[in-house]
């Protein structure tokens, strides 16, 4: 039977808590080349949004591709997206690997 291709989903996280509340692993030049969500903390904005899951891979943050970004740079892009007052939300493009 055909294997469905993983589909990317756009998830909008409202900044309705003091913390984003995710832990990520991975980045360019590691075994996990794109950041993967490994923890979602209760009470954080990510948890409140209800659409992010452990195991999802983050492809883009506010339209910025994380492909080729090393771990620290990917983490910085996400942290800055949460910190900026220009937007009350962060858009994550994620997919769930098969």
């Amino acid at each position: 039977s055909p294997v469905p291709a993983p589909t990317a989903t756009l998830v909008r996280v409202l900044k309705n808590s003091n913390t984003l509340g995710i832990a990520i692993e991975g980045g360019a030049n590691t075994r996990q080349p794109l950041p993967r969500i490994v923890t979602i903390q209760k009470g954080g904005s990510a948890h409140n949004c209800g659409q992010l899951r452990v195991g999802q891979i983050i492809l883009e943050v506010n339209g910025i591709s994380l492909k080729g970004q090393e771990h620290k740079d990917a983490a910085r892009i996400i942290a800055e997206a949460f910190k900026t007052k220009e937007k009350d939300h962060i858009d994550f493009l994620v997919f769930e690997p098969g």
Partner: peptide, 15 residues
Amino acid sequence: REKRLTLPPSEITLL
């Protein structure tokens, strides 16, 4: 035969 992993594991960052 076991595949050799050449890339290192990643650190984890809490955001």
